[in-house]
Nucleic acid binder design. Structure first.
Lengths: 220, 220
DNA sequence: ACGCGCTTGTGCAGTATAGCACAAACGATA
DNA sequence: TATCGTTTGTGCTATACTGCACAAGCGCGT
C-alpha cells in the first residue's frame, strides 16, 4: 500500500551492504594475483566469513556463480562494482588540511576503487592557497557554493570535533548526501544523508575491553 | 559444564562492546561542557540510539543510574573507562612512517582517551632514524624484540597492503594482542588476537550503494 | 508525609541475522 | 551417455539483537 510502485523490491539489509566492499576488496586482490575462479568457501576462508553467508549476501542481487565451479573472479568483481556504483569515479570534497587531510589528499588507494579527492577546504587563512598535490586549499567560505556547482555528493570531514557539525551542515547545504566523518563526534543530519564514522580511538577502546591488563602502564 | 568456574558470567555481545566507546565519547563531551546529569533518553537522542538500547547495554555491567534522575555524567564516564580499561594509558607500536603514520603519530586525540604511540617502525632505510615528534623511527628488524621488551600489547598497521600480513605476524610474535589495521586487506591472525579494520574506501563504498547516480561522473 | 512526574532496569515479544543442509546443476572422466 | 565430485542458491531452523512497556524507585513540591 505504501509502496511507490507495484514491484516488490525487498530492501537489502544494511549489514549486507557493508560486507559487499569487503568481498570486492578480496576479489580485486585475487584478480591482481591472476586468479580466475574462486568459490564462496575460498572467499570465506580468506575473510573469516561463512561460505553460506557469502552466497546468501550475493543472492540478494542475482545469480553470479555456477554450480560445481564457483565464481568467475573478474565477473563477480565487476558485478559488485556495479552494485556498489563504483565503476565510475566519485569526486569528493575534503574538509580539513591538517595532517590527516594531507594524508587523505595524497592517498593513492582512492583512485582505482572509485573515488577521487576533487577539492580541499580549510578555515585557516594560512592554509588557504597552499598546494596539496595537484589541489589548492580553498576557503571554507566558498565550500557550499563550490561543491554545489561541481555536483559533489560525497564529503570527508577531517577537522576538529568542535567544527565538525558546522562543516557537515555546509556540506549538506551544498548537496552532499554521503559523509565520511573522521571527527570524534556523532553528527546530526537529515535522514536522507548517510554518515560513516572513522575514529581510531573507538576501535582501540573496543579492543582494550578484551585485553588482560596485566602489564604496568603509565597512569593517566 | 564446560565453564571454567561455577559462576555464570554471561558473555557480553561484541556489538554492545562496540557501542560503549560511543557512549564514553559522548559523556566526555558532556563533562567538558559542564553537564552533570544526563538520561538514557538524552544520550540516545544525541547518538541516534534508542534509550532502551542504552539502558540495556549498561545493565550488562551494573546499575549506574538513579530512577527519576538519570545518570551522573562523570560517574558513568568513569565507569565506562574502567570497563573499557582506558583509565590507564596503553602504549602502542605504530608501523609505517608514511603520511598516515605521521598523522597518527602526531594525533592529539589519543592522549586523553587512553592511548599513546610509544614507538614507530618502518622498513625504509631512509625513514629510519628520522624524528616524528618526540619519537625516532626504528627499523622493522628490531620490531619484535623492542615491543616484547616494552610489553606493548597494541599495534597499529599503517603500511601498504602487501606488507601488512608480515607486519601483523611480527607484532603478534612480539606479544601484541590487539591490532588496528589501516591496510586494505583482511589479516589472518590467531583467535586470541583482536583486529579492527579502518579502510575509508570500504566506508565510502557502502554509502555509494545508496547514492543516486544522477550526476555525470568521470568514467573509470 | 504524601503524591506526582520522571527515569531506570528488565521480562517478554518481535524482528533481524546467521547457518544448516539439500536439491539442482555443472564439468570432468570414462 | 552415465556417473562422480563439486558448488551454488535457498527453504527452514536456530540464534542474536532490539524495543516495548511497566513495576520499582527517586526527588521535589506542597
Amino acid at each position: 500500500m505504501t509502496q511507490k510502485n507495484g514491484s516488490v523490491e525487498k530492501v537489502i539489509p544494511d549489514i549486507v551492504i557493508h560486507r559487499l566492499p569487503v568481498y570486492l576488496r578480496a576479489l580485486d586482490l585475487m584478480a591482481r594475483q591472476g586468479k580466475r575462479i574462486t568459490s564462496s568457501q575460498e572467499l570465506g576462508e580468506r575473510l573469516g566469513i561463512s561460505s553460506a553467508q557469502i552466497r546468501k549476501d550475493l543472492s540478494h542481487f542475482g545469480e553470479f556463480g555456477k554450480q560445481g565451479t564457483g565464481y568467475d573472479v573478474e565477473y563477480l568483481r565487476d558485478q559488485l562494482r556495479r552494485i556498489l556504483k563504483v565503476e565510475r569515479v566519485w569526486p569528493m570534497a575534503l574538509v580539513g588540511a591538517g595532517d590527516l587531510g594531507h594524508a587523505l589528499a595524497n592517498y593513492k588507494g582512492f583512485a582505482n576503487r572509485g573515488f577521487q579527492v576533487a577539492a580541499v577546504f580549510d578555515a585557516d587563512p594560512n592554509k588557504i592557497g597552499q598546494r596539496i598535490g595537484s589541489l589548492v586549499v580553498e576557503s571554507m567560505d566558498v565550500l557550499t557554493e563550490r561543491i554545489a556547482e561541481a555536483g559533489i555528493r560525497i564529503g570527508i570531514i577531517a577537522v576538529p570535533a568542535e567544527a565538525a557539525q558546522d562543516v557537515a551542515n555546509r556540506l549538506i547545504e551544498g548537496g552532499v548526501r554521503a559523509i565520511l566523518n573522521y571527527a570524534p563526534i556523532t553528527l546530526s543530519v537529515p535522514q536522507e544523508v548517510r554518515v560513516e564514522y572513522i575514529d581510531p580511538v573507538l576501535a582501540l577502546q573496543s579492543m582494550t575491553y578484551y585485553l588482560e591488563p596485566d602489564e604496568a602502564e603509565v597512569p593517566a
